[in-house]
Write a protein that binds this DNA or RNA. Structure first.
Lengths: 142, 142
DNA sequence: TTATATGCAAAGACTTTGCCGTTCA
DNA sequence: TGAACGGCAAAGTCTTTGCATATAA
């Protein structure tokens, strides 16, 4: 899925593209799973040992503000971040192995948009999170 | 929407129905909006000034464990709780006034269940959160 | 050059836990 | 009566903030 061009948005908003921000953006862009702030920090430190956790938080907040990043909340105390893609997508979290898969479905989106229209809601965001057991885990009974 | 009978589930699990738990259950049952732990505590104290915040947290965790209560996460640092209803329902949060409305839609649910089946996922939970502006707020441009 | 950004450490917000007296069944 | 529970305060976890220094543009 294509992601938004972080550098351009950042510059467009008159913000600086620092080395730290580049690192965080790249980590988010490369990761196939969703990362929490600490996981991002752990990876970022491999590329710059001095990069601090507060910079990670500040960067994530900035990216959220600019609409580059989405915060997901699967559990009580762990929030995960991902780069926004250009089209809406949804999540399936496996309760067995923790893997997160993404999916898209225009039909679901359409039904929800109609529903909102009926209620005269102006829809800004749709978030669908499914959880359960993936094909690999459903046998294991965990 | 009918809610599960808290007292029976609690007793069935061999847990005690204490006055504090009654109070929390009643608050959750009566509230038309979703409450966070502190809001629940504030209300609970009106009925028992000695009821502590940690009891609220412990009770919410217990009720969650028993499947009586659902934890919702709308913002980064505010989790909201609600009594589970017997059938699945979804949420629309107004970004203008903060009001949360609930809705149901078997069609959406059906599509998602089929989707999961195609992937051989065993679906345990569906969570759909819409956000945007309600009919009242959409004009105000806030 | 200078408005922004970072690192560090300290503070904040929310939640959990240990201990001990209390209470439900 | 005894296991479960609640109150309180202290500790834990995650996140934000103040301040001095560094840096992108």
């Amino acid at each position: 899925m294509p992601t938004i061009d972080g550098e351009r948005v950042l510059r467009g908003a008159g913000r600086r593209l620092t080395r730290q921000r580049q690192i965080v953006l790249e980590i988010l862009g490369r990761s196939r799973v969703h990362l929490d702030a600490e996981a991002i920090h752990r990876r970022a430190k491999r590329r710059d040992p001095r990069l601090s956790l507060s910079t990670v938080y500040r960067t994530l907040n900035l990216l959220k503000e600019l609409g580059l990043v989405e915060e997901r909340c699967f559990e009580r105390t762990h929030h995960h971040f991902e780069l926004k893609t250009l089209s809406e997508h949804f999540h399936f979290t496996c309760l067995g192995c923790g893997k997160v898969s993404e999916f898209q479905n225009p039909k679901v989106e359409g039904v929800l948009r109609n529903l909102a229209m009926d209620e005269r809601f102006k829809l800004e965001k749709i978030c669908i999170c499914l959880s359960g057991y993936c094909a690999d885990c459903r046998g294991k009974g965990s």
